[in-house]
Nucleic acid binder design. Structure first.
Ligand SMILES: [Mn+2]
Ligand SMILES: [Mn+2]
Ligand SMILES: [Zn+2]
Ligand SMILES: [Zn+2]
Lengths: 146, 146
DNA sequence: TCTTACTTGAGAAGTATTATCAAAATCAGT
DNA sequence: ACTGATTTTGATAATACTTCTCAAGTAAGA
């Protein structure tokens, strides 16, 4: 059993929830999907492969993944939430291309440290943060110049 | 005429729009409102003072303020958009208390510079960014410890 | 003053997500 | 394996926020 399955299983047991084939199937599809997938996209992808699982269950299960520490929800400003696997994945922030929706992940320890400093200066206890840089990626810049 | 009125007026003229009493009233109310006000809150505030302007017009006009460079829209994750005056206001980011909705603004040039560096390393042309630190403010921390 | 184009308020519509509920599935204890 | 309590599911209703529609009203400028 993969480590993600184990984590989900332990969360399910601890909270007196139930292991279902729908949850397994959604987890498998989620692990196979591209990073930053939306509920709708995951639902559609599964449906195209024959799944009959409902959209509501996909939403419910992605929320369950978030509660269990497997995934995190992101909102990049286009209305729909995206979910990404964050279990055993280092913290990172995002560069988002507004032309082609490319998302580049980056880590910058200096920025992280400065954020902590800002929080401290304001006597703020930070529990989460979001840093997103919006613009145009190198590929789209190339296309634009032609 | 205040500088904000002038900016709006020039945008209106340039785009063959029309100066209306509704737009003036909403601008005045917006300038008097607290920073990071939502459309609904501004609408309610005006209504309480006798205005009969509709909610749709408040939304339309706040969007107009954004197009004209007077204001910017913010989304702090609680579903509703907020608008803040940014004309003649230096760029800044936000600390958001999840307990009491307090919003603290901060500027950090080192972080800004590092963001530019990250963008450059990825051949990305950044047009905007958002940095938000979520957590608990000092006041709420005090209350929690009692 | 006329004419044209823009704006308005009210409510309908749209979008993303969550809530409801009856039927089905899972699980713990026998 | 059987049973009964509890959870989960799919379909769809409901919700929340925002934009759209449209007929009536208003501003701009010749
Ligand atoms: Mn990511
Ligand atoms: Mn601000
Ligand atoms: Zn791109
Ligand atoms: Zn607080």
């Amino acid at each position: 059993m993969e480590k993600e399955e184990e984590l989900l299983k332990s969360h399910i047991t601890k909270h007196h929830l139930k292991a279902t084939k729908e949850r397994s199937a959604i987890l498998k599809a989620f692990l196979d999907s591209e990073r930053h997938v939306s509920a709708e996209a995951l639902y559609r992808q599964m449906k195209d492969e024959g799944s009959t699982i409902g959209l509501a269950t996909v939403y419910r299960t992605l929320n369950l993944f978030c509660s269990s520490g497997l995934a995190e929800q992101r909102r990049f400003g286009d209305g729909q939430a995206r979910y990404e696997l964050t279990y055993n994945v280092d913290h990172h922030d995002h560069l988002i291309c507004k032309e082609c929706d490319l998302i580049i992940e980056f880590e910058n320890d200096e920025i992280e440290a400065l954020q902590k400093k800002v929080a401290k200066e304001n006597n703020f206890k930070v529990s989460s943060h979001r840093l997103e840089l919006y613009g145009v990626c190198s590929e789209c810049l190339k296309e634009k110049s032609t």
